[in-house]
Nucleic acid binder design. Structure first.
Lengths: 250, 250
DNA sequence: AGCATTCTTTGATCTGGGTCAAGGTGGCAA
DNA sequence: TTGCCACCTTGACCCAGATCAAAGAATGCT
């Protein structure tokens, strides 16, 4: 069973540990871990567009997304920008054992984060190997996702890139509602055209043109700029150029 | 899985644990860990060009590179290929808790791997949290490297890509000889032009042209096709477009 | 030595996506 | 209800890198 909706800061999620457990079952939660995590956690909320963390900032906490979407981005001296991670609810940011942020973390929608002070979190990790194991699994999944994205950035066409991104967003949105992604589906894009471009290694004009092309070709239906419906998820996957189920577990 | 298995080399590296510890000092090695790892390890060697593991293969071991260089590559149905990882000595392949390989692993030079049967390795990990922690650190480093590479693939020019790759190889070669990368340095490229292209998201012709351009501009000196010397490492880093120390810890 | 193979370089040409520029569109503040 | 501002779309043109083609090295085999 996947974890259900998290509530606002005042009424904390029923199982704070779920953040760490990243869509894993709660059944195995050990009470003391839960209490220990509860004791060091706090919530922060951000508005769409806000930069939560600047690259190079001191970061004295680790965190996981409760609701909303954020990006990790790298910026070159001359301003070229590449997004290197998309964070959906249950995704984790921050690295035990490093105290400066290597990326900008930007809220692309309104965002609620569940944070853990790093010091006590690290201590807790030392005491309960289980948390470290979970973190390892999550990190390995992220690594796979990053490598999948390397294929996209290095070898896919603009159209395939857009289709891949839409497929990933569709999948993640579906998983938030405990559904498998298939058939007709609809969702809101949590990203501006520019943010999409930064994730895909394109310009925003190309993103816009390819969105129009996919719409013209009936792969997607747009209502407004952000709401997308996908008549056939399989068709979308074909456009994404992925073999088989093609990809992200992320 | 096609591979020629030679027997364990007569003189194994003095501390097998170092593989896992990934360039860490051996001083902290705990005797029992070492013995336990020794008990489940074996060596395999491969020739340049051999594919050690095919994507989708059952993989019943994890391993680390002792000598030589290997790549992790993804291939699309139509043959487009993207390398998603470069493995130098001390780098780790394989994931506890997954039994099919997600990438092709290809030896780009003659290669010696130190392998651990997965089952006993996982059990050992369960008993000695220390190994899990080390693996987490290594995985987080790889994730950073992958994300750095995403910036390269998404936003850098062909010339910057080549310079970045040369800088990484120079750094890794230097670290094998326990030196800091700086000033004049020389090394052999462990990759063909095609393998470079696959890692950089370019064609081999573009790689060749840009190598010639960097040579013409005095950034590098080529002796033969593979031997590179770099008169000024700083100059190379500038060409790579990295800010500050720019990058890979890998 | 002669030939084949594999890797690399270089040239000529083409093109997908970038760049520059000009309008849409829609939400919201006054 | 108007006007602003942020976001998005579309068009015209351009260029970095792809593609197509040919011809050098280097190596190894007979």
């Amino acid at each position: 069973m996947l974890m259900t909706v998290h509530e606002a800061p005042l009424s904390a999620p029923s199982c704070g540990n779920c953040q760490i457990r990243h869509r894993a079952v709660c059944a195995r939660c050990e009470t003391d871990e839960l209490a220990a995590l509860d004791a060091i956690k706090f919530y922060r909320s951000f508005e769409a567009g806000q930069t939560l963390i600047w690259s190079g900032d001191r970061m004295d906490f680790v965190a996981s997304v409760v609701t909303g979407v954020a990006t990790l981005t790298q910026v070159m001296e001359d301003g070229r920008t590449q997004t290197v991670g998309l964070l959906f609810p249950s995704d984790f940011v921050g690295r035990p054992g490093r105290d400066h942020a290597p990326y900008n973390v930007i809220a692309t929608t309104d965002l609620l984060m569940c944070c853990f002070r790093k010091k006590p979190f690290e201590e807790l990790m030392g005491r309960t190997p289980h948390i470290g194991q979970r973190l390892l699994e999550m990190t390995l999944d992220e690594l796979d996702a990053a490598r999948e994205w390397m294929l996209l950035l290095g070898r896919k066409t603009a159209r395939e890139k857009i289709a891949s991104l839409l497929a990933i967003v569709a999948r993640r949105e579906a998983s938030l509602h405990l559904r498998a992604p298939q058939g007709r589906m609809a969702f809101d894009l949590p990203l501006t055209r520019e943010a999409m471009a930064d994730y895909l290694g394109l310009t925003l004009e190309t993103v816009s043109r390819q969105m129009s092309a996919l719409k013209r070709d009936g792969i997607i239906v747009l209502e407004g700029k952000r709401h997308v419906s996908v008549p056939s998820f399989d068709r979308l996957l074909e456009e994404a150029g992925d073999d088989a189920d093609g990809g992200f577990v992320g």
